[in-house]
Design a protein around this nucleic acid. Structure first.
Lengths: 336, 336
DNA sequence: AAGCAAACTTTACAAATGTATTTTCTGTAT
DNA sequence: ATACAGAAAATACATTTGTAAAGTTTGCTT
C-alpha cells in the first residue's frame, strides 16, 4: 500500500530495512554493554545517526522497557498525578497507616520534613501560620532549629477554648522549635455581632500585625469540613451561626475561618467579614502556600481550596490523595 | 563504630543521606518524565551533580531495569552452531562489548531475558540456583514478577565472605524479584575436615532441603576455572586444598564446587565428598539445566560441563561462543 | 542518458551528560 | 576563638547525544 503510493509519486530508493534484529542489537550494546553510540556505529559500520535513530525508535516502539523498581515509586506516581490534577507546584504525600489511621500524625511529620527542607534552602524571613491539630502535630515532629531571622506570624485569631492548638500556641510553638521570633494575633477568630470591623481592626497592635501579611514568604494553611470533626465548628463558631445554616448555604468546609462551597467560592461575605485574620485574597498573593490536611472528610474542602488558588504545595497522606484523585476524576467525567 | 572511627580522624560533616526515595524520585523524573538532569536539579533544588550521581547509583543498584525485547535474534547462526557442537537443547548468545569486556553484565541480562520467557511459558514449580557474580547480575536485570507457586531452592552451600552474591543472597534475591518463595541451604560449601558428611547432612533442616533437589523443574548453574579469577578459588577453598594441587590433579574448573577435568570427569571424589550441595548426578536428572557463564577463561570448563551432560541450555556471550566453537573444532580435528 | 526524488551520509552545531578540579561550608577538635 | 578536615557546591571542561542543515547516492522514469 505504502510502497505503491510512493511509486506513484516517483519513488527512488527503498528505505533500508531497519530490522528488529538490528535495532535490538544496537539497543543491547547501548543499554547492556554501555557502549557509546559512536562506538556502536563503528562496530556495526553504520553512521552514528542511524544508531541514534534506532535507539529512539526502539524507545517509542517499546522495544526497550525501562522499569523503576522501588518501594517509593507508588507514592511518587501519586504525587505527580495530584500535581497535575489539582494544578499544584508540589505535592508531598506521606504514607499513612491504614490500620491505625490518624489524620494528623503522618501529615504532621511530612509537613515537618518539608518545612525543615524549605527553611534550610528557601531563605524565608516571614512565615504565616494558621492553627489546628495538624500544625500542632507538625510542631511535635520538628527538630529544634535556629532561624533567628525568621518571624512566625499568626494569620488567624484564636478561640477562647483550646490552649496549645490555638492561635497563640501554634505560632509560639513553631517559633520556639524553629528558634525564631513570633507575632501573634491577639483577637478572637470571629468578631461578636455589633462590633464594627473597621474600628476593631484599626487598633494599633492589630494594625501593625496585619501589615505583616503583605510580606509573608510562605503560609501554612489547614482546612476543615463542616461537621463535628471540625474544631472550629465544635468550639469556635460565633453565636447565632449554626453548622446547619452553613451547609444550607452550600458550605463544605473552611480555610482560615472562611467557609467555601464546592467550587471554592466564599459562601457568606457576611460571615467572612466577621473573621479576624488574613483574607483569602491576600493568601493568594503569598509566594508559597502550603496546605496540610488529611482525612476523607477533608477531600471536598481540599479540592475547593485548590480551585480557589489557595494551595501550591499540598501535604497530605496517601489515603486522602487517592480519594482526592477519585473525586476529581468523577467530577471531570460528570462535567465534561 | 563507624561513626567513632570517623570522629577519630576528625570528621567534619555527615554525608547527606542519599535516600532511596530521593534516588527513586530522580529516576522517575529522568526516565519516565524524560526531564534533563539539570531540570530535575532545579526542581528538587539540588546540584546537577547530585542528580547525576543518583541516577548512576540507581543503575548500579539495579533500581532501574532496562529490558530489551528479543536480545538474541541476531545471533541465530552462532546459536545453531553451538547447539550442534555441544549437544545442547538451546543456546542463548548475547552480544558483548569487546572493548570494555565485562564477563557478567551481558550474560546476566541474557539470562534474565531467558528466565522471564521460560517462567511465563514453562510452569515451573521449583527452581534450583547456585550462586556467583553472573547470577547476581541476572537478578539486577530481572523485572519484578509474580510467581507465587514457584520456589527458589538454593542448591549449594555458601562461603563466609561475600554477602549478596552468596548462597543466601542469590536465592532470596531471585525469590524477591520473581515474587516466589525460597529455601536456602544454611551450610558452608565445603565441610571442614573431620566432619562426618552423613552425620552433618542428616540434620533435620538440611535433610528436608536436600529432598527438594529431586523435584526441581530447572537449575541455574554457573562454573569457573581454577585461577585467581574464580571467586571460589580466591575465597572458598577449604583449608589444605590449594589451586596448584587441583591443577596437578587435572582440574580445569568447577561446577557447584565439584572440580572437573578436561573431559568432564570428577577430579577428586574426596573433595567432592566435602561439598555441601546438589550432586552432579542429581543435576543431570533435572529437566532443564541452564548454564550461564562467559569469559575466555571459562571456555574449557564450559566444554567439560557440557560433555558431562550438565548443560542443556547454555547462556553465554558471542566472544565466549566463538572461542568455544574454535576450541571444539580444534579438538575434533586433533582427535578425529 | 538525463532528470528526479527519496533516502542515506556527511557535516555542523547546540544541548545534555560525565568527570575532574577548585571553592565554600560546617562540625569537630585544638 | 582558630585551625582543620571532610563533604558538598561551584566551576570548568571534555565527551556524548540530539537535531538540523547540507551533500551524495540510488533506482526509477522518461
Amino acid at each position: 500500500m505504502r510502497q505503491n503510493a510512493r511509486k506513484d509519486i516517483g519513488l527512488a530508493r527503498e528505505p533500508i530495512e531497519e530490522s528488529d534484529a538490528f535495532v535490538t542489537e544496537i539497543c543491547w550494546h547501548y543499554y547492556v554493554n554501555e557502549m557509546t553510540q559512536a562506538e556502536i556505529a563503528r562496530l556495526l559500520d553504520v553512521t552514528r545517526l542511524r544508531v541514534n535513530q534506532a535507539i529512539q525508535r526502539a524507545k517509542t516502539l517499546g522495544f526497550v522497557k525501562i522499569q523503576i523498581e522501588s518501594p517509593f515509586l507508588p507514592r511518587i506516581e501519586l504525587q505527580e498525578e495530584l500535581k497535575s490534577c489539582l494544578g499544584l507546584k508540589r505535592a508531598v504525600i506521606s504514607p499513612s497507616n491504614e490500620a491505625d489511621y490518624d489524620y494528623h500524625k503522618s501529615v504532621g511529620a511530612a509537613l515537618a520534613a518539608l518545612l525543615t527542607e524549605r527553611l534550610a534552602t528557601g531563605d524565608w524571613k516571614s512565615l504565616g501560620v494558621s492553627w489546628g491539630l495538624t500544625l500542632d502535630s507538625a510542631i511535635r515532629k520538628l527538630p529544634r532549629q535556629s532561624h533567628p531571622d525568621l518571624e512566625v506570624v499568626s494569620i488567624l485569631g484564636g478561640t477562647a477554648k483550646g490552649s496549645t492548638l490555638n492561635s497563640f500556641g501554634i505560632a509560639s510553638g513553631f517559633a520556639n522549635v524553629l528558634g525564631a521570633r513570633y507575632s501573634v494575633l491577639t483577637a478572637p477568630i470571629y468578631l461578636s455581632e455589633g462590633i464594627d470591623r473597621e474600628v476593631f481592626l484599626s487598633q494599633y497592635a492589630l494594625k501593625e500585625h496585619f501589615e505583616k501579611f503583605a510580606s509573608l514568604d510562605a503560609v501554612l494553611l489547614t482546612c476543615s469540613n463542616v461537621s463535628e470533626k471540625s474544631f472550629l465548628v465544635e468550639h469556635g463558631l460565633p453565636q447565632g451561626l449554626s453548622p446547619e445554616a452553613l451547609i444550607d448555604a452550600g458550605a463544605i468546609g473552611d480555610v482560615l475561618g472562611k467557609f467555601l462551597d464546592r467550587d471554592g467560592r466564599s459562601v457568606s461575605a457576611q460571615v467572612d467579614n466577621r473573621t479576624v485574620g488574613m483574607s483569602l485574597e491576600d493568601v493568594i498573593e503569598v509566594p508559597e502556600k502550603i496546605m496540610a490536611a488529611a482525612g476523607p472528610h477533608k477531600v471536598e474542602i481540599l479540592k475547593a481550596a485548590c480551585q480557589r488558588g489557595l494551595v501550591d504545595t499540598l501535604v497530605t497522606d496517601d489515603t486522602t490523595a487517592r480519594l482526592l484523585l477519585k473525586s476529581v476524576a468523577k467530577q471531570s467525567t460528570a462535567t465534561g
